[in-house]
Each structure stands twice: as C-alpha cells, then as structure tokens.
Design a protein around this nucleic acid. Sequence first.
DNA 1: TTGAAAGGAATTTTT
DNA 2: TTCCTTTCAA
Length: 782
Amino acid sequence: MNPHESALLEDLNPPQREAVLHGDGPLLVLSGAGSGKTRVITRRVANLVKVRRVFPWRILAVTFTNKAAREMRERLVQLLGAQANDLVVSTFHSSAAMILRREAEHVGLTRSFVIYDDGDQLNVVKRAMREAGIEQSMQPREILHRIDQEKNAARLPEHMVVEPGDERGMLVRRVYAAYQERLRAANAVDFGDLLLLLVTLFRTRPDVLENYRRRFHHVLVDEFQDTNPVQYELLKLLAPPPSANLVVVGDDDQSIYRWRGADVDNILNFPQQYPGARVVKLEQNYRSDQNILDAANDVIRRNPRRMDKKLWSDRPRGADLTLLLNRDERAEAQEVARQILALQREGLIRFSSMAVFYRVNAQSRVLEEALRLARVPYTLVSGRSFYDRAEVRDAAAYLRLMVNPRSDADLLRIINTPARGIGDTTVERVTDHANSRGVSLYEALSQPESIPDLNTTAVKRLKGFRNLVASLATFALDAKDAASAVEQMLLETKLVDSLQAEGSDESQTRAENLREFLGAAQEFDLNRAAAAVAAAKNAAEVPPEVDAAPLTADVPPLQAFLEQISLVGEADAEVGEGRVALMTLHAAKGLEFDAVFLPGMEEGVFPHARAVKAEAMQHDDEAPRDTDPTEEMAEERRLCYVGFTRARKRLFVSLAQCRSLFGELRYNPPSRFLQDVEPKRFGISEQDLTTRARPPSTAAVAPRKRTWDEDDGPRIDRSYSQASDDMDGVGGDVRGMRVRHEQFGLGRIIAADGSGPNAKVTVEFGGGVGLKRVIARFLMPG
DNA sequence: TTGAAAGGAATTTTT
DNA sequence: TTCCTTTCAA
C-alpha cells in the first residue's frame, strides 16, 4: 500500500474507508450524527490528491456555512499542505458568486455587481410595490418570502405557477418581475440570484457550462440534506447523472431548513436521481454516551419516511438524562444556571464544554439574566451581528456605491447619512424623476436642476452628495487595497466624525465599530496578500484547454472585501473561551458539547406552536396548502434529534409549568418529545414502569400518553430554588380537595405525602384516567 | 426634518 | 413583553 494511503486510512472504520476509497461515480454517504463525516470528506479529498494524483484545482467541495468551509479547509491544509490552496472549498453562495462574477456579462451584469442582503431586498420590494401602486394589498415581507421561495425552487417570474383566480399569486408574480428588473438595473443580485442566475446561465449556455465541467472532475457536498432545488439543480448541471463524480454527504434526520426551501427529498431520492450511486452508511457514533443516543433514537424513530439507518456506539451507557421541572421560565433559568455551576464545581466539565439550546431567540433573555446573576460566563452565539449594525451597514453601503454607483438601494440608504438635509420629500422627487426616465438615482443626480419641484437648497445639497460619491468612486478605481478605500470613505463622508460629535455613549460605540470595520478591511488585505503568495508558489502544470485559475483571480480588492462582507460575515466569534454557549437549536447543528441543556421542552415552545397548530388543522379544509403539517412536525422532531445528539456526556431537558411569552401567561403541557423518551433513560427501571398502577386503557390505546410525572417519574432534580417557595404546596389536610391537572383533567385528592412544592399526591381523575400520583405543583385548584 | 407616540407583530435565518 | 415600523405633530 502507498504510504500516503495507509496514513490517510488510519483510524477509519470500514464504512468510512469505503467512502474514502470509493472510485469514480456518484456516492451518497449517509452519516448519522457524530459519525465522523467531516473526517471522511477531508480524507477523501486528500486521497484524491495524494494517492490518485488528481489536481487540486479539479476538486470542488461545497458546504452551507462559512464556518464549515473554513474548518474543512483548515483540515485539508493539515493533510495536504500548500496544495490545499488550489482546492475550491467554499459555500454554495460563494462559489456561485465567484463563477458569476467571471461570467457576469452573460447574465446582464457587470463584474462589479453588488450583493443585496435581506434588508436591501425588502426595500426593493417596497419600492417596486409603491411604484406599481399596490402598497396596501399585501405585506412586503410576505411577498419577499414568496419571491425567495420561488428562487429556491429555481423559478423565474415567468416560470411561476399561478392558478387562475389566485389574486395573491398574480400579485407576487408581478412584484417579482418588477423586483428582478430593479435588481438588474442596479447591477445587483440577491442571495437567491447567485444560484438562480448561475443555473439559468448554465442551462442557456452549454459552452460556458462545459468549461466548468471540464475543470471540476470531483464535486463533494456537505450537509446535502439541506440543499434546496436550485442548489441541487446546480450540482446536477456541474456533475450530471448518472455517472459524474458527485459525492454527497448528509443525514436526512438532520434536515432542519425546510422553511428556507431545503427539500429532504433531495437526499431521500438521490439513489433514483443517480441510479447506480453507491450508498455508504456511517452508523457508528463516536460522540454521545449510549443513554443520550438511545434517547435521541426514541425521538427520531417516530418520524415516517427516513433512510434506513441505526446509530450505535460502543461508548459507555453514561449518566442518566436529567429532567428539570420548574414553576416558570425564570425558575427554570435559575435552575439551569445552578446546574451549570454544579457541573463546573464537580470539575469534570468546563464552562466551554457546556451549551444551552433554545427553540426561539425570545427564550434567551431570561436565560442570560439568570446566568449573569449566577456569575456564569456565557457567550450568545448569534448570526452576524457585527455587520448587521446600522453604522457598519451604512459604511458598507458607501463602499458598494463606490464600486457600483447604480446601486439604488445603497444610495437611498446613505443619501442622508450622516444627516445632510436631504429629506423624504426631496428623495421622493428624485426617485420619481429617475423612474420616469428609467435611469438610476445616481444618474438622475448628475443634473439635479432638471428634477421638477426642487428648490435651490435641495439642488445644492444633492450636488454636494453626488460629488462626494463621484469622488469616492474615482478613488476606489485605483485603490491598491480595501483598507485605503475604507479609510478614504470614512474621511470624506465624515461618518466617524459626525458620530463623535453626537457625544452620547452609544454614538461613541458606533464610532468605535466603524474603526473596527476599518480594522477588518486591513486584516482582509493581509490575508489576501498571504493567499496570493501561497497560490503563486503553487503554479501547477495544467492542460491548456482547461481554465484552472483560482476562481477569485482578477477581482479588485475592494470588491473582494465587499463580497466577503456580504457572504462571509465576520470572522466567526469563536465560541468564547471558558464560556457557556447560548444559541438556538438551529445554530447548534454541527457542534458538540459535553453537557447540553434544553430548556422549554413544552408543547407550543418545542415543538413550536406553529407546528402544533398546523398539525391540529391538518384535517381542516382551510389548512394553508403551501404547508405540509406533518412535515412541519417531523422537522421539529428532527430539530430535537439534532439537539439531543449534540451532547457527549450529559443531557438536561427542562420545562416550566407556566411561562410568559409575548406578555401572555401560558400553561404548556410537556413536550411530546419528552414523552417519547423511554423512562429508563432517565434512570427509571422497566420494572418500575410495569408495576406502576396504571389504567391499561391509557397505556394500550395511546402509548404516547405515557407520562413521566406519575409515581417516581424520571430523575427529577430536587434542588428547587427559593423562587419556588411561594408555590402552592401541600399544607394541612388536602384529602378530598378537587383539583385540576393540565393533562389529566379534573380529579379529587385521595392521599398525600410530603409537603412543599414537591409533595406528591394521589389523585383520582375522571374521564377514564383513574388513579395517578402526581406532583402537587402540577395541580391547580379545580 | 426630526422626534415622540402609537400600533402591530413576534419561529428557525447556513447565504 | 419588546421591538420595530409607521404615523403624527412641532
């Protein structure tokens, strides 16, 4: 065996090896949670290069997130050294943007097109609606959402399917068409366009497509279960069925982005799309203790339509799952904080190996408060906060305008920032004038005198603004790096100065952010210089008919910086050192921690109320037809599976008896996902379960109705906070008292033991439920 | 043009 | 409840 090969195969299990060594042709790697898929992808790439002697520039590896791309690249650098620089390892959107920029003229753009984000998109939709006089008819947000969905489905306005009589659909199509026209006129694209325009180009220009097919002989895709139809289409064009070297890696059980257009069917039907594809299953989990894995399986098992696979592990059984029950969300948060401190004191798990996952961001506030109070260091892991700040976006808008003055959305954003006395009325007159003449705002500003109804001060101010932009654009033309352009922009626009003049603490911070923005540009320049050196060293022999140049070659520095801002965001706020991580369940995908906390395991929170409602309405004729209620619930279940499988050693699931959300107090029953978990995972023996007095009807007819708060219940942590003191516990003789239980309904107390909130009482419930022993806290006076 | 007040909506958000 | 957008008044 080649020495490279043996080193690459070291410490791989047989299916992993099979995936790494698979020769040519399509391959589907079904990789369960924690089964080492990144290792498989990176080793496979390394094997292609080192053993099979494939040129690195022939390999395209696509991921969904920048983080995943970065990690993959880092691991490939370790395996391949400098050769890794010639690989294309990037996200769908980045690679599409790179190709689109090279081929811009084919799709009605110039190379300096800019990328609009969500906020820009919404503004364009609003303006298009206003222009068409249909502002009142529909929510711009909803229209934008539907446009995005169309793009995800790879449909241009003319391909939209609208039933006759579907007024709203027709409206969407109209706005969509106008929206696209505006983007093209502004030399701008949105995220969806990056993929959709490229697909369109490849479909209409086989010669262009052929260049890329000739170049990329190997395409690998991570997290394939989250691809949407355009992305899949792009893959099929680049690596056509039935025999291209397309390797897709994913787990149907971790598909959680349906609401963004992802389609699990892509992975489920892959073997049909690529007949003859080899399927390799990675089923050994190296991450979680057996108990946790079993609980995760208990939950996911209930989903229909899954690829057949069984996760197993030879890790120890491990600790029982812990269930935390509390009075309300504040007590719950305190309890989580307390448990975190306890774990840390035990000394086996560090703060940085713990995480709290929640379903919705609104849950984070109370958790943060509790952690702060308990002095638990934490980091809130959330999207791309830095580049979302208003002042940073203003700065970016100026830069984009410098590169591409036609960008109306950017111009509108900063025409009066910092305030220069150009108000709404003036802007509206300019807009009307530009629209009627079919030119960009910037062009309309070249002769403000000719704009009707403007007074002389307005004209003067507009001229000043236009001169500012013109001067900056000229500067940008031959700026040698991104930082100098940013510096010049900050200087001429006085963005920093005007913030500093304000004097408030907040404006100081914002000024500081702008300096940091300049710092980001400087860092970008340094990295770029380093990358250029590495690429130069690497010039390999290339067949003359193949274009093997780096996809980013010839992109001017400022433009490349802007692209990074749009597509990559900040350089990843690494999960803080020595800090507990707080994030949504969606953000948790791909991560792992020793201890995981899942607060809010309640119906209506997780699963989300929307999924519960959709399920309840599924037999209603009025159910909205664009949503699939069962699929919606299935996705919540997958999300739960993702959450559970992030945990290595300890899993804490938690719920509150009542919780206030949006100012309203709710009493949510325990999450169905909890009820799906076998009690023994919580340390309750099978025997306990069977000897329990339970009306057979409940168990037999509806096994799902099994509840864990009867009898001993699963291991419930008893260290309730003082905050629970005011709870109605059992005091005095309560026998005979009529009570009501969230799940079991009305009943009468037969016996009681203990006192305080955790006292247990035996209650005879009506409605065929019979005798139950429940915790007093879960009862209300009936 | 700007600020304050009122009104309305509030999953998830890789790019 | 809270945050964001829109609207209204100075």
